[in-house]
Design a protein around this nucleic acid. Structure first.
Length: 363
DNA sequence: AAGAAGGACAACCGCATAGAA
DNA sequence: GTTCTATGCGGTTGTCCTTCT
């Protein structure tokens, strides 16, 4: 049926072409222009087309993409022009493999945002939503096929923990929770940025801001029981073999680029481990201020259940005894179990990001 | 060496939304 | 208030290349 439609449409186009060609032959330039407007090219762009588009954007700026075809005669629809420009031609695009930092960032952002590629890409300068989407889908597919977790242990821990907090009627902390000398809140700029989001769904996180925490390098959670050498995450993730190795055992790879992932994450520690002897642990996934503290970090001690505190590496006010500790380990371990592919697929079908599963805020 | 399988990437399609007319 | 247009976004498909058998 669909094929027949396409066939019919194609035949129709052919007839139109013939008719139009005759008219052109008769010198009807208007019809020729109309024909050109109808028969737009598809498929890969040529360098000549790229040059035309670049020249057009230089002269007229971005936007008004439908005018490109009219002005330049380029046989591409506006949509195609915009896509070509944003994904390939615009300046400052970063090409090539994702760095470990970028991969971790994508994992964290995806855990919080789900398939919001445009928003994820806004955290990775130089990367396009299409690029990130392709990257993520490819790796997700591969890892699911291999029975490996989609998210790194640190991210999984937070996913599990956020679920547990909901089960326990845990009340998220305010955004002004003091953490040692840090305040998990946005500065004025971040607050302004957060205001751009709807109140129904606060900004997922200002990861970059939290990663830096002023001049401090980012530090992720201490190794969890799940990141034992037998953990699937002990295996290389994606093309970067050093990616997602354990913080306590993975020195910064000499191959790790020094180029910051984000304009404001100049000191992101590629190893995600303790850095510079400062054992203050910063939240890997703290929501932005303004944002609900749905994923309390190890630093949010006052309201943190003992289990999480035990994993956080911080000393809880009421340290559990050994039996309790092991029970909590088991509990969290169960909670963090990798969802079987079927379940993951179901979640995907609902288009509900794992981190937002059970999210009552909705969107 | 040839075909199959998988990965990476580019591009298209349909839908949603915002702003203009 | 409605319609139209431009734009953006996410899902999907197609193509090329590499690796494996």
């Amino acid at each position: 049926m669909e094929e027949e439609k396409k066939l019919a449409a194609a035949e129709g186009r052919e007839e139109e072409k013939v008719a139009a060609a005759e008219e052109v032959a008769a010198g009807r330039e208007e019809e020729e222009a109309a024909l050109a407007a109808v028969v737009l090219k598809k498929g890969p762009w040529t360098s000549a087309e790229d040059a035309v588009l670049v020249q057009h954007v230089r002269q007229h700026g971005e936007g008004n993409w439908n005018a490109v075809q009219r002005v330049t005669g380029l046989l591409r629809c506006g949509k195609s022009c915009r896509l070509r420009w944003t994904n390939h031609l615009r300046p400052n695009l970063k090409k090539g493999s994702f760095s470990p930092d970028e991969e971790f960032l994508v994992a964290q952002l995806h855990a919080q945002l789900g398939n919001k590629w445009a928003r994820i890409s806004s955290h990775l300068p130089g990367r396009t939503d299409n690029e990130i989407k392709n990257y993520w889908n490819t790796r997700t597919k591969r890892r699911q096929r291999a029975g490996l977790p989609v998210y790194p242990p640190e991210v999984q821990l937070h996913l599990a923990y956020s679920k547990r907090c909901r089960y326990d009627g845990f009340t998220p902390l305010s955004s002004q929770q003091q953490v040692g000398s840090h305040v998990l809140s946005l500065d004025a700029g971040d607050a302004a940025a957060s205001a751009r989001y709807t109140t129904a769904r606060p900004p997922p996180l200002d990861l970059a801001g939290h990663l830096t925490m002023g001049s401090r390098p980012v530090q992720f959670l201490a190794p969890t029981p799940f990141s034992a050498p037998s953990s699937p995450w002990g295996k290389p993730f994606a093309r970067n073999a050093q990616f997602f190795q354990f913080p306590h055992s993975s020195p910064v790879s000499p191959t790790t680029p020094n180029v910051p992932v984000h304009a404001v994450t100049p000191k992101l520690s590629p190893g995600y481990g303790l850095h510079g002897g400062d054992h203050t642990r910063l939240p890997p996934m703290s929501p932005s201020s303004g944002a609900r503290a749905e994923l309390p970090s190890s630093q949010l001690r006052p309201a943190m259940p003992p289990a999480a505190a035990a994993f956080s590496g911080t000393a809880p006010n009421d340290p559990p005894n050994q039996a309790t500790f092991e029970a909590m380990l088991q509990e969290l371990h169960d909670a963090i179990k990798i969802d079987p592919p079927a379940q993951q697929n179901r979640e995907k079908e609902r288009d509900v990001p794992a981190a937002a599963a059970g999210d009552t805020h909705g969107e």
